[in-house]
């Protein structure tokens, strides 16, 4: 028996929320950056090899490897996002992180949203969602105050009161800004 006296079948609402950090570097951009560094490394490498100062070449290639590693990481993390899908009475959280996909499901009625404030030395607060002894951190890429706002919204979607929550659709775009008519930028 549902606590509100309604059954799951009463409200087949589907709600979807997407958390996606903005990334301005495209795949082609990454390749271009790497190739330009590689070209510079090869040119400088030959130059220093020719002068006899060959250990310089080692440092040049060490650095190129570092740049390559960082760009690979950037490519891997480019698709990072989190989807929060509420269908019927279930909340599904799909996390795309570092090329891996993980999926978690919670019963809206039993789920709880918790916000652990920033502790000593930690980057920012932790937003957790969980039920039955399981807890999952979400919105890791969000800003602190965005986490508070998201916690509020999610709080409305879970627990006994979730049926009265306003429907949420679409996508969250954060830290975005736009140009005004004077060519100045301002946050949206």
């Amino acid at each position: 028996m549902h606590p509100h006296g309604r059954t799951v079948a009463d409200a087949p609402v589907k709600q979807r929320l997407e958390l996606r950090p903005n990334r301005s570097l495209t795949g082609r951009g990454r390749t271009a950056v790497f190739l330009s560094f590689a070209a510079a490394t090869v040119v400088l490498g030959f130059l220093f090899l020719a002068t006899g100062a060959w250990p310089v070449v080692l440092f040049l290639f060490l650095e190129l490897a570092g740049i390559g590693y960082v760009l690979t990481r950037t490519a891997r993390d480019a698709g990072d996002c989190e989807e929060i899908v509420v269908e019927d009475d279930r909340m599904k959280i799909i996390q795309h992180a570092a090329g891996r996909v993980s999926q978690h499901e919670f019963q809206c009625y039993w789920a709880k949203v918790a916000l652990e404030p920033a502790g000593r030395g930690r980057r920012s607060a932790k937003l957790l969602i969980g039920s039955h002894g399981r807890a999952l951190e979400i919105g890791r890429a969000l800003q602190e105050s965005e986490k508070y706002r998201l916690a509020q919204r999610l709080g409305l979607m879970v627990g006994p009161a979730h049926r009265d929550a306003p429907p949420l659709r679409g996508e969250i775009i954060f830290n975005s800004c736009e140009e005004d008519t004077h060519g100045n930028f301002a946050p949206r």
């Binding site: 800003q143 965005e146 996508e171 969250i172 954060f174 830290n175 975005s176 800004c177 946050p187 949206r188």
Partner: peptide, 9 residues
């Protein structure tokens, strides 16, 4: 934290 703008839905 900079640009902690409200999430735009």
């Amino acid at each position: 934290h900079s640009f902690a703008t409200p999430p735009k839905v």
